[in-house]
Design a protein around this nucleic acid. Sequence first.
DNA 1: ACAAAAGTGTTGTCCGTACACCCATGT
DNA 2: ACATGGGTGTACGGACAACACTTTTGT
Lengths: 227, 227
Amino acid sequence: MRKMPHIRVAVDAVVFGYRDRKLNVLLIKRSIEPFKDSWALPGGLVLENESLETAVERELKEETNVTIDYLEQLYTFGNVDRDPRNRVVSIAYFALVKPEHHLIKADTDAKDVAWFAIDDLPNLAFDHQKIFETAKNRLKSKLTYEPIGFDLLANKFLFSDLEKLYTTILEKDIDRRNFRKKILSFNILEELEQKVSEGRGRPANLFKFNQKQYFKLLKEGFLFDIK
Amino acid sequence: MRKMPHIRVAVDAVVFGYRDRKLNVLLIKRSIEPFKDSWALPGGLVLENESLETAVERELKEETNVTIDYLEQLYTFGNVDRDPRNRVVSIAYFALVKPEHHLIKADTDAKDVAWFAIDDLPNLAFDHQKIFETAKNRLKSKLTYEPIGFDLLANKFLFSDLEKLYTTILEKDIDRRNFRKKILSFNILEELEQKVSEGRGRPANLFKFNQKQYFKLLKEGFLFDIK
DNA sequence: ACAAAAGTGTTGTCCGTACACCCATGT
DNA sequence: ACATGGGTGTACGGACAACACTTTTGT
């Protein structure tokens, strides 16, 4: 007779934030072995009577205190040796946080939490580098066919912010005129009266993403699509 | 102190085959409780020292005996009550099988295996209906941006087969001339000398998918895309 | 008046779509 | 000769890409 397998089930989250015109990820510093003092993705074991999403939300609350604006399942990592101690299968999640929700835990613990620019990451514990890369690819491709960029921007934003976000994440130049024309043609932005002067240059208009309008258009067959 | 959670880890597979100009799924009849005698997706618990993919392949071999031509992870289903007995998290996989590999187990067991046309499915055990629908959506969208249709056709196929496969799965009409023009413009098909006469009508040319060529073009930035 | 960023319009090209007739075979 | 499915070309329109100058502000 075969021994009943005992495989632990965990969740991990790749949480992206856009700060300072750079794409960042939220990491925690591990306070226990294995990989003590290494940086890692927030996450942990799933409890027996909570759903996977609940587990992610709980861990993020416990470990980082950020408020998530977008969450979706990313991929499940289940290599036999991904954890040196036990067999652990991890369901990875992909999350986006608006700047106004970037506030992280004011912690007294040894456990540290911090935002890292993605082109300047420390070594990550376990297979978290691989998970991170999977998430980064998901972000890059999803940005082109779903309006998730708005979940990385403040509620009110400048068009130039949106444009910069796209060029930063997609790592390629965009023609400002064509980009604006395209996005505006979707009719999912609300132009506010407010103008903002960034110190020098002509003051810019603030915009707001109209999610209700987006869902309405979706139902009518609209497809968000930015090349 | 919290009780160590015990969550079981399983894999399930949605295996598609194209038979008789219809899209089919491979199901097994359960021989044990719960859902004894119900039809279900092939799958089962993951062993402690095998990877998730290995587990899927083993289960498919044990339960159905089909040879898989395409396999990818689909989604992980982890609702607390998806199995009435225990907490089971299932990593679902998405698989395609060519007609020449459709041969299923000649079984003496009580356990039955069969292909079902997807518009004529029986009630499925657990949350397998939902898993199936997720897979069907994946198939529909992936068909448009990756050449996975060829993994549902015989190695040598008629253009009309390919066309019919697209109209069947996408559930919409396609202009025959534009479709052929588009696919041929990709240069990923090899036109064989062989012609086939289907009884009546003008004999048709056989084609072969040139995977090597596809990968070469991929590296050069080519994007498969059928509207 | 100059520097810095915001805002805006036109033109050509390419790709997708619509559409109908001839061809090769079996009966 | 007729029925059946296979194979092919053209023309139009819309969307994307390329491209540069004017406007508004701060200094």
